Simulated scan of single mutants.
Amino acid sequence: MSENTSITELSSQYTAQVTSDLERNTKEQERIADEIAALNEQLAALQRNHAVLVSIQQAIDAVPAPADTAEKSGDAVTVPAPRKQSSSAARTSKDAKANKTTKAAKPAVGKRSGAAKPAAKSPAKSRAAAGGKAVSAKPAGKAAPAKTAQPTLVDLVRRHLGEQSEPRSAAEVTTALTQAHPERSIKTTVIRTTLEGLVARNHAHRTKQGTSVFYTASDAPEASESSPKDAAQAVPADA
């Protein structure tokens, strides 16, 4: 009888201990599940903010840079003032000019009165010729080359999803865009963030198959491209 009683007491104790452990384990699972849900919400908010910030940065990069102001206005060059000639040099220059004028006038005196004088150019023709030389001598201004704005990564991803008939993963989208645009550096992490941003704005749908995530284009009409200022206002307060 004593052995049966001790066995019954031990069984009762073990049963109570196991029941207590099960309750404690269940409560711990519920607590951890709540924490995971809260962390997932924070992660989703951070991903949305990151996508918005990436689109703002790409929109800023797509704006063409202003032309160099030095080409428009020209570099300011300081021209030194001419030096004043000394009084002796000025007198020597005047005497030389007077001698040249006298030598040029002497042959005209010895000519016959009936000799034909060369026709003087009219002032209008002189001005026209001078104006033509001035116009032809003026260098043509450099035409600033037009800079074509490249499409942003958001536009490329959205266009690629719209052209596909089946869902695509972030890795597949990265491979396709890298082959189509080898001159751009495209990373899978940036593509995944961009896709999550499109999902947050209802421009794409996300489906999960096992451990893989696939994306498809949304049937909703695409919103007009927002300016960097509007995109900056769209950033949530917890960014």
Score class of each variant (00 low, 15 high):
62 A>L: 05
52 V>L: 10
78 T>H: 13
149 A>H: 15
226 S>H: 00
16 A>V: 07
198 L>K: 07
56 I>W: 03
91 R>Y: 12
59 A>N: 04
141 G>N: 10
165 S>V: 04
100 K>N: 10
115 A>G: 07
32 I>M: 07
225 E>F: 00
225 E>T: 15
112 R>F: 13
40 N>W: 05
136 S>E: 09
53 L>D: 05
179 Q>C: 02
87 S>E: 15
137 A>C: 11
123 P>Q: 08
80 P>G: 11
51 A>E: 03
40 N>S: 08
204 A>S: 02
27 K>N: 09
4 N>E: 09
60 I>V: 15
93 S>T: 11
141 G>W: 07
29 Q>K: 08
152 T>N: 03
96 A>P: 07
183 E>L: 05
227 S>A: 14
46 L>S: 11
17 Q>E: 05
44 A>Y: 06
107 P>T: 03
96 A>W: 11
125 K>M: 10
169 S>E: 01
150 Q>M: 12
111 K>E: 14
43 L>D: 07
112 R>A: 15
221 P>F: 00
71 E>M: 14
136 S>T: 15
42 Q>S: 09
184 R>F: 10
165 S>W: 01
105 A>N: 08
65 A>H: 11
24 R>F: 07
34 D>H: 07
110 G>S: 12
38 A>E: 12
102 T>Q: 14
221 P>A: 02
52 V>P: 03
129 A>K: 06
89 A>T: 01
235 V>I: 15
94 K>G: 09
224 S>D: 03
144 A>S: 14
200 A>W: 00
163 E>A: 08
69 T>A: 10
147 K>C: 03
1 M>L: 07
171 A>I: 02
213 V>D: 01
146 A>N: 12
92 T>S: 15
128 A>F: 03
130 A>Q: 05
207 T>A: 09
133 K>T: 08
218 S>I: 00
141 G>S: 12
239 A>H: 12
69 T>H: 04
36 I>S: 04
26 T>E: 12
196 E>W: 01
193 T>G: 02
128 A>W: 01
225 E>G: 01
88 S>F: 14
90 A>Y: 02
131 G>P: 00
110 G>Q: 06
204 A>R: 01
222 E>F: 03
148 T>D: 10
32 I>A: 13
65 A>P: 07
131 G>K: 05
146 A>I: 12
136 S>M: 15
113 S>E: 10
71 E>Q: 15
140 A>L: 05
109 V>P: 01
96 A>I: 11
57 Q>N: 12
196 E>L: 06
24 R>Q: 05
